[in-house]
C-alpha cells in the first residue's frame, strides 16, 4: 500500500493542531472560549471512563435508526420506481416530509412519543431515510432498456427481473445512498439527544456547554467525528466485500 495518502493528511493535521495550540498559548485565549488541543485531550482523559457509555448510547441510536431507515427506504424506493400509481400517490408526501427541518419537529415528536428511544428513532428516520429511498429509486429507474429487454426475451417475470436485473443494477446507487444515510444517521442521533436524553455524546455536548466546559464538548465532537468516519468506512468496506463490481461502476462508488 502506498503510504503517501496516509502520511500527507496526518502531517497537515499535525501542523494545524500545532498552529492552534500555539495560537491559544501566544494570545492566552481563555479555555471557555477556545480550549487548546492539549486541553481537549486532557479533558478527554478525565472523562474517559464515561465516554464508552455515552458513545454506545449514541451508536445504538445511530445503528437502530439506520437499520429502520434502510428497511423502509429500500422497499419504498423500489415501489415508487416501479409503480406509477404509488409514485404519484406518495412521492409528493415524502418530498414534503423530507422538506420539514427535523430540528423543528423534534420537540413535537418528543411530546407525542415521550422521551424514550422511540422518539429518537423517529427523528433519526426522518433525517436519513430520504436519500436512501431516492438513491434506490434512481438506481432502479436507471436500468438500461437493453438489460430489461434481455430479461423480457428470456421470459423473466416482474420479480425475477427485479431481483436479477434491476436491483443489481441499482446496487452502486443504493450504496451511495447508504453512505449519505449513515452519516446523516449520526446527525439524527445527536439531534435526538440534544432534545431528549440523559445519555449519549449529544447529551454530553449539551451538558458540557451549559457548564462552559468547551474542552469536554469538543472531545465529544471528536469522538462523534470518528464514529461517523468509521461507520462510513464500514459501509464502504461492505460494498467492496460483497459487491466488488459495483465500485468501479460509478467512480466514487
Amino acid at each position: 500500500m502506498p503510504m503517501r495518502p496516509v502520511i500527507l493528511p496526518i502531517i497537515s493535521l499535525a501542523v494545524l493542531l500545532l498552529a492552534w495550540e500555539l495560537y491559544v498559548w501566544i494570545f492566552a485565549v481563555p479555555s471557555y472560549l477556545l480550549p487548546a488541543p492539549s486541553a481537549i485531550w486532557a479533558s478527554g482523559t478525565q472523562i474517559i471512563g464515561a465516554v464508552p457509555i455515552h458513545t454506545w448510547a449514541t451508536l445504538f441510536t445511530v445503528l437502530a435508526g439506520f437499520a429502520v431507515s434502510v428497511a423502509v427506504a429500500i422497499p419504498l424506493g423500489v415501489i415508487i420506481s416501479v409503480n406509477r400509481l404509488a409514485s404519484e400517490a406518495i412521492y409528493p408526501l415524502l418530498v414534503f416530509a423530507n422538506a420539514i427541518p427535523v430540528i423543528a419537529v423534534a420537540p413535537i415528536i418528543v411530546v407525542m412519543l415521550g422521551t424514550g428511544i422511540e422518539a429518537r428513532l423517529v427523528i433519526n428516520f426522518l433525517v436519513c431515510f430520504f436519500p436512501i429511498m431516492v438513491a434506490t429509486a434512481a438506481g432502479i429507474l436507471d436500468t438500461p432498456k437493453d438489460y430489461l429487454d434481455l430479461g423480457k426475451s428470456t421470459g423473466a417475470g416482474f420479480m425475477t427481473g427485479l431481483l436479477t436485473i434491476r436491483m443489481p443494477h441499482a446496487t452502486p446507487f443504493i450504496f451511495s445512498g447508504l453512505k449519505i444515510g449513515i452519516t446523516l444517521s449520526v446527525i439524527g442521533a445527536v439531534v435526538g439527544e440534544f432534545i431528549t436524553s440523559n445519555r449519549g455524546l449529544g447529551y454530553l455536548i449539551v451538558s458540557s456547554t451549559t457548564n462552559f466546559d468547551l474542552a469536554q464538548a469538543m472531545f465529544s465532537v471528536v469522538v462523534l467525528a470518528f464514529m461517523s468516519v468509521i461507520l462510513f468506512q464500514i459501509v464502504q468496506f461492505a460494498q467492496k466485500l460483497w459487491f466488488p463490481w459495483s465500485i468501479k461502476a460509478n467512480g466514487m462508488g
Binding site: 437493453d146 438489460y147 434481455l150 423480457k152 421470459g155 443489481p168 443494477h169 459487491f243
Partner: peptide, 27 residues
Amino acid sequence: PGFDNIGFVFQGSNLLPWLSVLDNVLY
C-alpha cells in the same frame, strides 16, 4: 417473450456487468 424456442443476441453484447462470463451465459 421468453419463448423457449428463441435466443436473442443484442447489438451491444449487453452482458450484465455484475455477473461472470459463465453466469452471463447461464442467465
